[in-house]
């Protein structure tokens, strides 16, 4: 069978872990299908990533020396189209990263490849490639196939495959980047704002309280817990309406989306439409509510049916 090509990514000299997860997905397919696995890295100094990419199961690492230090969408789309035309892989795997959002669909259009994004399952049914992804807010899974496509490009969801630990001894090949007119220019990176004033849109960890809090003094108790947990305190509308917390802490207030948040601990929040609009994108929502049917549970990753004061009192003892 035609080989599997994995496109690795780097940013500011650091290999993206998702690249190794894509390799793991390819190596898993190789175990049943026997295809060779080829990893490709495009960078200013691609050699420096070869050792990291040389994990067991990888047969070949292709290095492409780029004129740019950082990702640029035209370079990726055009170089990879040329590489794919030369190599004719059956399957191309790319991390489902922001960089990939910016070039992978364009690459698929240019090469007329089969394409699916955010895939977390890949298998062959006979000769047919079948990819699995989710739809409708993860409520259903969907199996996708690609009738009539010899080459299929997939972007692969992170944290799905476990990186291969053992190292291997792949062949190293160079591929020359074609001449490309790039239509965008990298200027600089902006670091996420840190520390200083409270900005819930920049908070990484949040503890948010809702109507279940009952009294103003209880707000203080949960503020104390949030501080000891090193979580940023947020709240739902009724708390801010009462004047118990400032409006800048209100999630869902005038476009306050907690876009940088990775863990959201919702205490006593039932989940109004406005509040959920502000936080439903958080990957790890932990909801605590006495009502097992509270709508917040429908978007939570972890649910705790319990009294928030009981849970808060217990949590206090873990963070002091």
């Amino acid at each position: 069978m035609a080989e599997i090509l994995v496109i690795a990514e780097q940013r500011r000299g650091e290999l993206a872990a998702a690249s190794l997860e894509c390799i793991a997905a390819a190596v898993e397919l190789k175990q049943s299908g026997g295809q060779s696995v080829v990893a490709c890295i495009i960078a200013q100094n691609p050699e420096s990533y070869v050792a990291l990419l040389s994990v067991a199961g990888v047969d070949e690492v292709i290095t492409v020396t780029s004129v740019e230090a950082e990702f640029q969408s035209d370079i990726f789309a055009e170089t990879l189209q040329a590489l794919i035309e030369q190599r004719q892989p059956g399957l191309v795997l790319v991390p489902h990263s922001i960089d990939a959002w910016g070039y992978a669909p364009a690459l698929a259009v240019r090469g007329q490849y089969g394409f699916a994004s955010d895939v977390f399952g890949i298998r062959y049914d006979g000769d047919d490639l079948v990819a699995t992804r989710a739809a409708y807010a993860e409520k259903v899974h969907v199996e996708i196939d690609f009738p009539g496509r010899q080459i299929v490009l997939l972007t692969v969801r992170g944290n799905t495959w476990k990186q291969v630990e053992e190292s291997g001894n792949p062949q190293i090949t160079e591929f020359a980047m074609p001449a490309i007119t790039k239509r965008s220019n990298h200027e600089t990176f902006l670091e996420p704002a840190s520390g200083g004033g409270v900005d819930i849109t920049q908070a990484e960890f949040m503890l948010s309280i809702g109507r279940g809090i009952d009294e103003e003094d209880n707000v203080e108790q949960f503020a104390e817990l949030a501080e000891s947990m090193e979580f940023t305190l947020g709240c739902s509308r009724p708390i801010a309406d009462n004047g118990w917390l400032p409006k800048y802490r209100q999630v869902g207030q005038s476009g306050k989306t907690v876009s940088s948040c990775s863990i959201y601990l919702a205490l006593g929040i039932s989940g109004s439409v406005q509040h959920m609009a502000g936080m439903k994108h958080v990957p790890n929502i932990i909801a605590v509510n006495t009502d097992p049917e509270a709508s917040i549970f429908s978007i939570a990753r972890y649910g705790v049916v319990a009294d928030i004061f009981d849970i808060a009192e217990e949590l206090e003892n873990h963070f002091d």
């Binding site: 089969g114 699916a116 969907v142 939570a300």
Partner: peptide, 14 residues
């Protein structure tokens, strides 16, 4: 560039 084969319920709840 793709076709839905089937849609199904994932095994574990959310």
């Amino acid at each position: 560039a793709s076709r839905v084969r089937r849609m199904y319920l994932p095994e574990k709840g959310q």
